[in-house]
Computed example of a mutant assay.
Amino acid sequence: MLDSLFGAPEIPLHNLHLLEKDIPNIILWAVPVMLFFTVIEMVVTYYQERDYYEKKETIGSILVGIGSLIVNAILKLSLVYLFIWVYNQLPWRMEFTWWTLLPCYVIYDFFSYWAHRVSHEQRFWWATHVVHHTGEHYNLTVSYRLSWVQHLKLIFFMPVALIGFHPIIFFVTNQIAVLFQFWVHTEYIRRMPAWVEYVFATPSNHRVHHGSQEKYIDKNFGATFIFWDRLFGTFQPEEEQVIYGITTNIENKANPLIINFHEFIDIFHDVRSAKGLRRKLFFIFGSPVKIAEEKKQVTVGQSQLVDSEVN
């Protein structure tokens, strides 16, 4: 069986355009379905007079989502080339077999957990992810908020490619993993059966992840499976009502450029004003939580100094 699975032939790079066409664009196919359910949620929210949507935020989410589709289309060929090149270097290349999608998905989700966790623990990577957390209302359009530079995080998934999965299997896995996260961004699905909540990143589990309260910050990183969080000590059940957004919310909620790049701009200003290499590196790769706390303390200190001078 192993002989028939491993040792697949190399994929000729001159036929790259043919392989690209063989990779199903599942996300693009799913867009009409996602829009359909989003409109239903909007209509229900309107008639129930709930505050799950806010006009400017919704516009921002849609524009960010359109931009993500454009970036994906531009980068698709180069990403396919990269992963085929890696695949061709491996002596243990796997044949294109659909059942390999299952182990690939579980392994991919494991690395997704760590990529997601690092994206919260180091500021540079947080800047590639914060886009997804800027919404102060929780609804299906939040799933559209995918950073335009998120492909930088593909470095975290190279171990999956190095295992030898066929490139088509890898890209299908990636698309299914992204689409799975659509349905968890809603207030309308509350607690699910206990075994589902224990295994999967359900809406309840993922609402916690979007919380700005101290008990919810940096919890529930699992994309599809929540048992990674239970295993590595980052699980938090949904208890009190979640307050969505980031600790310092952005003011311009409809501008996709601000939504995507405000954190990079803040990093630039912090690094430019920092003294010494150690401080500069801290503002690039330090914990976003610690950096925010330090900047808050400085702001409070400056405010108190001004008040004392006035008095």
Score class of each variant (00 low, 15 high):
Glu263His: 07
Asn260Leu: 11
Lys280Glu: 03
Asp266Arg: 12
Lys275Gly: 00
Arg272Met: 11
Lys253Thr: 09
Ser287Met: 06
Lys275Leu: 04
Thr248Ile: 08
Phe285Gln: 05
Arg272Gln: 13
Ile259Phe: 03
Thr299Val: 05
Lys275Trp: 04
Asn260Pro: 07
Pro256Tyr: 08
Ser273Ala: 11
Phe282Glu: 04
Asn260His: 04
Ile267Thr: 12
Ile291Gln: 06
Phe268Tyr: 10
Val300Thr: 10
Gly301Trp: 00
Thr248Pro: 00
Phe261Arg: 04
Lys275Phe: 07
Lys280Val: 06
Leu277Val: 13
Lys290Gln: 15
Phe264Val: 01
Asn255Thr: 04
Phe268Gln: 09
Val300Ala: 11
Asn249Cys: 05
Ile291Gly: 01
Leu277Asp: 11
Ala292His: 14
Ser273His: 11
Arg279Cys: 07
Glu251Asn: 10
Ser287Trp: 09
Gly301Ile: 02
Lys290Gly: 06
Lys295Ser: 00
Thr248Ser: 09
His262Ser: 01
Val300Glu: 14
Pro256Gly: 01
Ile284Tyr: 11
Thr247Gln: 11
Lys253Leu: 08
Asn252Glu: 08
Ala274Val: 14
Pro288His: 06
Gln297Trp: 12
Leu281Ile: 13
His262Met: 01
Gly286Ser: 05
Ser273Gly: 06
Arg278Thr: 10
Glu293Thr: 00
Lys296His: 13
Ile246Asn: 01
Gly286Leu: 08
Val289His: 05
Lys275Ser: 10
Ile284Cys: 15
Val271Trp: 09
Leu281Phe: 11
Asn249Ser: 10
Gly245Arg: 02
Ile246Ser: 02
Lys275Asn: 04
Glu263Val: 00
Ile291Pro: 01
Glu293His: 07
Ala274Asp: 10
Thr299Phe: 13
Val271Ser: 09
Gly245Tyr: 11
Gln297Lys: 15
Leu257Gln: 08
Gly245His: 04
His269Pro: 01
Asn249Phe: 02
Glu294Ser: 00
Ile258Tyr: 06
Lys290Trp: 14
Arg278Met: 10
Gly245Cys: 09
Arg279Asn: 13
Ala274Cys: 08
Val289Leu: 02
Phe264Gly: 02
Ala292Arg: 08
Arg272Asp: 07
Glu294His: 13
Ser287Ala: 05
Val271Ala: 09
Gln297His: 12
Glu251Met: 08
Phe264Asn: 06
Ile265Trp: 15
Gly301Ala: 03
Gly276Asn: 12
